[in-house]
């Protein structure tokens, strides 16, 4: 496998170039107001603004910083979806990624395994030392695709890295866990997913935007896996009732306690 050959190179030659793939998803920006589409099973996409999913953006930035630090190597970006994902890929190219692959399908299936199968088919044999994902997409929030890809590729997987470093055929990562952190070490090639806090994505410079136009964008049909999981129904959180101000100072505390016990029934 390409990765194994590379591993040898890395040990014997030192600063061999690393090849990193970052899988990115195009998602709606979260600061807008959402409506549910007539189907009842998806978000109404009219008028939404789209961008790279937050965690995927951190992954792109972390990947670029690693290759910059090593002074060698390149970052490829891959996205699955309809033609509009090329916009998102082009943004990653303008940030400094070297090459993009668009895995084309009309609709992005909800089933993470269907997506993971297509990504794994593309990544397999690509000679990547590291495959990166965001910890989860900020729209469907499954957080499963990266894990499934790792399994399909038979590679070690570190989920939710808040720090990441690679050198000499191995990587180290920090994960934030309940009440603390843990440092892990893994061999390459590997799959990692990125948590927030690792790196704030850079703005594409104007030069980067110009350069992106000349970078390669491969378009291939997505080899989706079977779809065994679908959304049956979506609903919006119930509108919150308006708050009530009882007054100020210690005098209102007994009334507050009474309401919390008897009306809100929370204490």
């Amino acid at each position: 496998m390409g990765g194994t050959i590379f591993l040898v190179n890395f040990f014997t030659m030192g600063a061999a170039p690393v090849k990193i793939a970052v899988c990115i998803k195009r998602v709606p920006e979260m600061d807008g107001a959402f409506k549910i589409a007539a189907s009842g099973t998806a978000v109404d996409e009219t008028g939404l603004k789209w961008d790279i999913s937050d965690f995927d953006g951190y992954a792109v930035e972390a990947a670029l910083q690693m290759t910059e630090k090593l002074g060698a190597g390149e970052v490829h970006v891959i996205s699955l979806g309809p033609d509009v994902v090329q916009e998102t890929l082009r943004k990653a190219l303008s940030m400094g990624c070297a090459r993009a692959t668009h895995l084309k399908c009309d609709v992005v299936p909800f089933d993470p395994f269907a997506i993971a199968s297509a990504l794994a088919a593309e990544l397999q044999g690509g000679g990547y030392d590291l495959v990166m994902f965001g910890k989860m997409s900020i729209d469907s929030a499954n957080g499963a695709v990266g894990l499934m890809v790792a399994d399909l590729l038979g590679m070690p997987m570190v989920h939710g890295c808040s720090k990441l470093d690679i050198a000499a055929g191995a990587g180290t990562a920090r994960r934030e866990i309940e009440g603390g952190g843990e440092l892990v070490r893994f061999s390459l090639p590997a799959v990692v997913s990125i948590d927030e806090g690792i790196a704030r994505p850079r703005y594409p410079s104007l030069k980067g935007i110009m350069a992106a136009k000349k970078k390669p964008m491969d378009v291939k049909p997505a080899q989706l896996g079977p779809v065994r999981l679908t959304v049956q129904k979506m609903d919006l959180p119930a509108a919150r009732a308006a708050g009530r101000i009882l007054g100020e100072g210690a005098a209102v505390v007994p009334e507050l306690v009474r309401l919390l016990q008897q009306e809100a029934k929370v204490i």
Binding site: R90, K91, S94, Y203, P204, L206, I209, M210, A212, K213
Partner: peptide
């Protein structure tokens, strides 16, 4: 054109 929209998005985010 698309490039103008990319510039606009970047500057808008920066702003």
């Amino acid at each position: 054109e698309e490039q103008h929209l990319q510039v606009r998005e970047m500057v808008r985010n920066f702003a």
